[in-house]
């Protein structure tokens, strides 16, 4: 008896939550709350800040969405971001041109993406351990290159680029928007996008349809690493320095953003725009807590709580889907 009642109540909640995206709901809630507490929250400078911070998080969260949709995970994303920044900075310091420095970063990112992808797609190794291992490799290389110290003093062109505006939109926000548009097209308007969704849903069926599923699976990791590697340029532009460990922890926020946005670890169920909502929710949370002068380390705890909430929502949804299926 009690079992049925519980199930019914859960399904009711699930129905409610699946009608309104959880991350969107939490986002609106926080926006209202923070504005009431401190009207400075909605000032133009602060909102611009939120936009800039969100755009950097999105550079990780968007490719992470594709990776999680293949029932995978990339714990090395933050380390790669740090390493890529270091490579750009060191290359610039060594007198390379900006494009050459970017090319160097690109090469390294693609190599690591390929390493992750080969081990995960072709050898079917669990993504979380593989990327934990490559995370170690990347962190190590970044530390070795810098001896653990921040790298600064390279051409100000990078910072200028970060602070520039396209028309009236800050360049980082424009880039994040362009990336969203590009990945949206890829995911929802190309064959490759279908295959990405199919890998998480039923890789064998994709194989039976005559597609080289492993290659597509590998491509997802390579694409993700490429985007992350290039976004390092924005990261080092923000502070005009590269720090080998600056990216560590960013992968957690990226994963949290994706999960908050309703992308599930199962069956290729994902939502690209959810990552935008999730990233916004996390940035707004951090920003609001900042305004309330709550310690940045406690903010991570709050993100963890937000994540658990999101996972509860994910589960309630799944149970609802299972019951109605």
């Amino acid at each position: 008896m009690s079992v049925t009642i519980q199930l019914q109540r859960r399904s009711g909640m699930g129905q409610f939550l699946s009608a309104i995206p959880g991350a969107g709901l939490l986002l609106i809630l926080m926006l209202v709350l923070f504005t009431i507490v401190n009207p400075r929250f909605v000032s133009q400078t602060n909102l611009m800040n939120v936009g800039l911070q969100t755009s950097l998080l999105l550079m990780l969260a968007l490719p992470m969405t594709l990776i999680i949709m293949t029932e995978g995970l990339d714990l090395s994303a933050g380390a790669l971001l740090g390493l890529s920044g270091v490579i750009v900075a060191e290359a610039l310091l060594a007198g390379w041109g900006v494009l050459a420095a970017c090319a160097a970063t690109l090469a390294v990112s693609i190599a690591f993406g390929a390493l992750n992808g080969v081990l995960i797609a072709y050898l079917s190794l669990p993504a979380f351990v593989v990327t934990l291992g490559t995370m170690g490799l990347m962190q190590g290389i970044a530390l070795v290159l810098t001896n653990g110290d921040p790298v600064g003093g390279f051409t100000p062109a990078i910072e200028t680029f970060y602070r520039s505006q396209l028309w009236f939109i800050p360049t980082p926000i424009a880039i994040a928007a362009a990336l969203y548009a590009a990945l949206w097209l890829l995911l929802y308007r190309t064959r490759l996008g279908n295959y990405v969704i199919a890998i998480g849903g039923n890789k064998d069926a994709l194989r039976l349809a005559g597609i080289r599923a492993n290659l597509v699976h590998l491509a997802v990791y390579v694409l993700g690493s490429t985007i992350i590697g290039l976004s390092a340029v924005l990261l080092i532009g923000r502070t005009n320095s590269a720090h080998p460990t600056v990216g560590i922890g960013m992968e957690f926020e990226a994963i949290a953003a994706v999960v908050l946005g309703g992308t599930s670890f199962e069956k290729g169920q994902g939502w690209l725009f959810g990552a935008v909502l999730g990233a916004l929710a996390i940035t707004v949370l951090r920003n609001g807590l900042n305004i309330l002068s709550i310690d940045s380390s406690l903010q991570v705890v709050c993100i963890g709580i937000l994540l658990i909430l999101a996972l509860l929502i994910d589960q309630a949804r799944k149970q609802f889907v299972r019951r109605t299926a």
């Binding site: 279908n194 969704i197 199919a198 998480g200 849903g201 039923n202 064998d204 069926a205 994709l206 039976l208 349809a209 005559g210 597609i211 069956k267 290729g268 169920q269 994902g270």
Partner: peptide
């Protein structure tokens, strides 16, 4: 052998 989060049309023409 359907892919859960592809729509009907995408499933019908998967791989083609």
């Amino acid at each position: 052998s359907l892919i859960p989060y592809l729509d009907i049309a995408q499933n019908i023409f998967l791989g083609r």
